[in-house]
């Protein structure tokens, strides 16, 4: 018998309406409110052991505390799957389902399933983290929304092959994976079909939708370069010849920092590139073409910059996931901040 737990708000938890929105989290054994319908839909192989109830405002204004309390409730429980909602178009409820769902996913690594209407702001906030099914606008859709959540949950726990977001009916989580078309249609056939539609102005569906770009604010510029400490970072895979950190030559998950405090320029046979995505000959003959330490030292002598940071940082960019690259960068940032680095030159290949 698999075990499930459901999260709902104060209203569906039959505590009360808006006046009870500050209700602190509670966990109740067995089924409360929508849990009954969910249990019915889940069938006999999955048991909802507990229902967690929390006021929407409480979750909204004390998010961290509420999440910690609920995670505390769950720590000694058996959980195979976690449900939250459905939240329909209720914004605070949707966001609460997302917050707790994301925390449960991270803490216990179990499938988390919710349901929200497309206009619920919780969708955009949490679709990357949990399964959010496309739900109705109001509680009138309760039965239908719960049915979708339950059905998908049953299939996950049974180990069924799961379809894509569109096929299953949840909001895509931003995870792209290869699938074999059934029935099989060759790429050549698909090209011709798409081309003819494009030529004749008929609608067609690209297989690679171009995502919107997400930008970060531009950091405050350096005020006085002549006093600044500058660090060199590269994704060009320059490492000491024995590659002490065993950085992978593609799809890297490791980075290294190498002491250059007593070095005037990077010498061949001392440093090399382990990047597999390009012809390494030039960089092996003169690593300064990727890590320009020689000219940085010159700028240091001239007083254009204050100091070259004592270490340079290196990893390999080819095939490396954005997630891994971001994690490595965050680790490097800690180091840069500890060393009071004022600016970074990043050389990519």
């Amino acid at each position: 018998m698999k075990k499930a737990i459901l999260y709902i708000n104060q209203f569906f938890g039959q505590i009360g309406g808006e006046e009870e929105a500050d209700f602190a989290p509670e966990i109740k054994e067995g089924l409360v409110g929508p849990a009954m319908e969910l249990q019915k839909q889940l069938g006999e192989d999955i048991e909802i052991t507990h229902t967690v109830i929390c006021g929407d405002n409480y979750m909204g204004s004390n998010t961290e505390e509420a999440v910690n309390t609920i995670i505390g409730f769950l720590e000694d429980k058996e959980i195979d799957i976690f449900f939250a909602g459905p939240a329909f178009r209720a914004g605070r409820y949707g966001s609460a389902c997302g917050h707790i769902g994301k925390a449960v996913k991270e803490k216990f690594d179990v499938p988390v399933i919710s349901s929200m209407n497309e206009e619920n702001p919780g969708v955009e906030m949490f679709r990357e983290h949990i399964y959010i099914f496309k739900g109705g606008a109001s509680a009138a859709a309760m039965r239908k929304d719960i049915k979708k959540m339950a059905e998908f949950g049953r299939r996950i726990l049974k180990g069924d092959t799961l379809g894509s977001a569109d096929e299953e009916g949840y909001y895509g989580r931003g995870i792209r994976r290869q699938v074999w078309l059934e029935p099989p249609i060759t790429a050549a056939d698909r090209v011709i079909d798409m081309l003819l539609k494009k030529i004749h102005g008929e609608p067609f569906q690209t297989e690679l939708p171009i995502p919107d770009q997400d930008m970060v604010p531009i950091a405050e510029p350096i005020k006085d370069l002549s006093k600044a400490k500058i660090a060199i970072v590269t994704s060009g895979g320059i490492v000491p010849v024995d590659n002490p950190d065993r950085i992978q030559s593609a799809s890297a998950t490791r980075w290294g920092k190498y002491d250059i405090s007593d070095t005037d320029r990077l010498e061949p046979k001392v440093f090399k590139t382990i990047h597999a995505g390009f012809d390494p000959a030039a960089a092996n003959n003169d690593p300064n073409v990727i890590v320009p330490l020689d000219v940085m030292r010159e700028f240091e002598r001239e007083g254009k910059i204050g100091k070259v940071h004592d270490y340079f940082y290196s990893t390999v960019g080819t095939g490396t996931t954005e997630g891994e690259a971001a994690r490595m960068a965050r680790e490097i940032v800690v180091d840069l901040q500890d060393a009071n680095v004022d600016g970074v030159i990043l050389i990519s290949t």
Binding site: V216, P217, I218, A219, E220, P221, I222, V233, S235, G317, A325, A326, M328, A329, R330, I332, V333, L336, Q337, V341, D342, G343, V344, I345, L346, I347, S348, T349
Partner: peptide, 22 residues
């Protein structure tokens, strides 16, 4: 990588051949 460093408030410049990629 660039974004994470910039997000931390450290000014960063990327030297790259493939400007469209950057």
């Amino acid at each position: 990588m660039v974004k994470e460093i910039e997000k931390a408030g450290i000014p960063i410049v990327q030297m790259a051949n493939l400007i469209p990629v950057a």
